[in-house]
Simulated assay, not measured.
Amino acid sequence: MSTDLFHRSGRLRKGYHREQVEDFLDRAKQVWDAGGPPGAVTSWHVRTVGFDLRRDGYDIGAVDEALDRIEDAFVSREERAGPNSWREAEEGVLARLQRGDGTRFPRGRALGLGYRVGEVDALTARIRDHLVLGRPLAVDEVRTSVFRAGRGSRGYREAPVDAFLDRVVDVMRRRGSG
C-alpha cells in the first residue's frame, strides 16, 4: 500500500523531491491547524516555495495544483485577520535577498520559459544594496523591470519573481524610499 501524497513522475521523468514536498506540507498544516504562529507560513511562502527535482519525484502539476489551493486558503485567512505588518513583509524580502545568486527562486521547468537568472540576480543585488546599504534605487525601476527569457532551468519561474518584486515595491513605498 502506497503512502504517497501525489502521483509520482516516473523513473524517466523528474518530479518534485518527495521528502521536501512532504516536509513543507506538514509545516503548512501545523501552522494552519494552530492558526499561526504569525509569519511561520503565509500565502507568500506557499506561492514562492521551491523544490529540488528528482527522478521518480512527485508529479509537478499535481503538487502545483495543491499548492494553489493551499495558497488560496492562506490568502483568505490573512484577509480576514487583517493585512500583515509591513515589517513582516520587509523581513521576508530581506530573507530572500540573503540567498545566493542562482538560488533565490525556483527554476523553470523543462522547455518552459522563465526569466534569465543572471538578470534577475543583478536586480536583486541592486535591491539588496538599496534596502541594506541605502544605495539609490527608484521604485519604478523595480516595478517596471523587464527580463529576457531563459528556457528551462536557465530561467527562474516567473510567478515567484513577480510576487517578490511586488512585495519589494510595497516595502520600498512603505519605507518612503526610491
Rank of each mutant, 00 (worst) to 15 (best):
M1A: 14
S2R: 15
T3K: 07
T3H: 09
F6G: 08
H7V: 10
R8Y: 04
R8C: 05
R11M: 07
R11L: 13
R11C: 07
L12Y: 11
R13P: 03
K14S: 02
G15T: 09
G15C: 06
Y16M: 04
Y16E: 02
H17E: 04
Q20M: 10
Q20S: 06
E22Q: 10
D23I: 09
F24K: 07
F24E: 04
D26H: 08
D26M: 06
R27W: 03
R27L: 13
A28F: 03
K29R: 15
Q30N: 10
Q30T: 14
Q30K: 15
W32E: 13
W32I: 08
D33L: 14
G35W: 06
A40W: 10
A40H: 01
A40L: 12
A40P: 01
V41H: 06
T42D: 06
S43M: 01
G50N: 05
G50S: 12
G50Y: 00
F51Y: 13
R54D: 13
R55V: 05
R55S: 11
D56R: 12
G57R: 02
D59W: 07
D59C: 13
G61S: 14
V63F: 07
E65L: 13
E65A: 15
L67P: 01
E71D: 13
A73Y: 05
A73V: 03
S76G: 15
S76L: 15
S76W: 09
R77Q: 13
E78V: 05
E79S: 12
W86D: 08
W86N: 01
W86M: 11
R87M: 04
R87K: 12
E88G: 06
E90K: 11
E91S: 08
E91W: 02
G92V: 04
G92A: 14
V93G: 01
A95V: 07
R96Q: 15
L97R: 00
Q98M: 13
G100W: 04
G100M: 03
D101V: 07
G102F: 09
T103P: 00
R104M: 04
F105R: 00
F105V: 05
P106G: 10
P106K: 11
G108T: 07
G108L: 03
R109D: 09
R109W: 08
A110R: 14
L111V: 05
G112S: 14
G112Q: 14
R116Q: 14
V117L: 12
G118I: 02
G118Y: 07
D121C: 07
D121L: 00
A122I: 04
L123H: 08
L123E: 12
T124G: 05
T124V: 08
R126Q: 12
I127A: 03
D129K: 05
H130R: 14
H130E: 00
V132I: 13
G134A: 09
G134F: 06
G134Y: 08
R135L: 15
V139E: 08
V139A: 02
D140F: 07
E141W: 05
V142N: 00
R143K: 14
V146K: 11
R148H: 12
A149F: 06
A149D: 11
R151N: 01
R151W: 06
G152C: 09
S153N: 01
Y156G: 03
R157F: 00
E158C: 07
D162Q: 09
A163Q: 02
D166M: 01
R167P: 00
V168H: 04
V168F: 09
V168N: 03
D170N: 08
V171G: 02
R174H: 12
G176E: 08
G176A: 00
G178K: 01
G178L: 02
